[in-house]
């Protein structure tokens, strides 16, 4: 029973990571950039949400995250405008530097405490398994978002443009698709999704100014853990990471669960499970 309980709570926690992994994956697939600052957008969303308080704080937080990722999108566009063939790794370094910027800004505005947004109250138990409404809410919200995103990608004209740009930015631009604009929109989209994840995180595990980087690493491990990088696999991977971390917290000696995500990243990337094509942008 305890195992099932840890497991389910892990998957509910994983909903947050799943959304973040999704945010990283969409940006990665369309722009070749792994946005290391994604976790920081989430942290910012959570901090702003807590600061503004319920109910509108949540929306404000998501907007803040979107604005931050939009700024990264602008930086990306300038970078590409200045040299189309430049090494993508430099932009990834920019996102790391951007993480420093956001961390420092959050710290100077909100201080160093771990902060919480009021969670959905209450809990229930099914056959001896004790679950919170907050967990169920986070999970359902994440699944609805995922379904919405998948539907949009599948059927909306904007989704078609995104998919085309993701397959090959070059041929998409040759067919007249405004690839750069699409990429910018994808940055906004990633930021918004990360924002939702951040607000959800602030309702359960809490967020602090320095959560961002660790969140990004966890989310990235979710995005790659299933080998192929797609929207739904990234989300599923995030759920699995949540599960792994929860079980690690329960059964490993205290503190070792923090190594779960980085170990998975090393193992998955070194095993060559993830196609080299995903990284090809970084090696012209």
């Amino acid at each position: 029973m305890a195992f099932v309980e840890f497991g389910l709570n892990g998957i509910f926690l994983g909903a947050v990571f799943g959304l973040l992994a999704l945010a990283i994956a969409v940006v990665w697939m369309t722009t070749d950039v792994v946005d290391v600052a994604t976790g920081s957008y989430a942290a910012a969303a959570g901090m702003v949400a807590v600061w503004a308080g319920p109910p509108w704080g949540a929306l404000l937080g998501i907007l803040a995250a979107t604005a931050l990722s939009g700024t990264m999108g602008v930086i990306f566009l300038i970078f590409r405008r200045l040299g189309a063939t430049r090494d993508t790794i430099l932009i990834v370094l920019c996102t790391i530097a951007y993480t420093f910027v956001i961390e420092s800004a959050l710290q100077s505005v909100f201080g160093t405490d771990n902060r919480f947004f009021p969670s959905v109250p209450g809990a229930f138990d099914v056959a001896g398994v004790f679950l919170t409404f907050q967990g169920v809410f986070a999970f359902l919200l994440a699944v609805v978002l995922l379904a919405g995103l998948l539907a949009a990608l599948r059927w909306s004209p904007a989704g078609l443009l995104m998919r085309a740009s993701a397959i090959s930015a070059k041929s998409a631009s040759l067919t007249g698709i405004p690839v750069r604009r699409v990429q910018f929109v994808v940055f906004l989209l990633g930021g918004a999704i990360a924002g939702v994840a951040g607000v959800l995180a602030s309702m359960s595990i809490g967020v602090s100014y320095s959560s961002g980087f660790a969140l990004s690493i966890v989310a990235f491990s979710g995005a790659v853990v299933l080998g192929r990088v797609t929207v739904s696999l990234a989300f599923t991977g995030g759920l699995l990471i949540g599960l792994a971390i929860a079980l690690g917290q329960a059964y490993l000696p205290q503190g070792w669960d923090a190594a779960t995500a980085p170990i998975l990243i090393v193992a998955v990337l070194c095993s060559g499970l993830v196609s080299r094509d995903m990284f090809h942008g970084a090696r012209p």
């Binding site: 990235f220 190594a259 170990i263 990243i265 970084a282």
Partner: peptide
């Protein structure tokens, strides 16, 4: 053997470990 971007993420994960 890894491509650049992949190598960056793996090495930073190592440091976290």
């Amino acid at each position: 053997r890894l491509p650049e971007l992949s190598l960056a993420l793996v090495t930073i994960s190592l440091v976290m470990i």
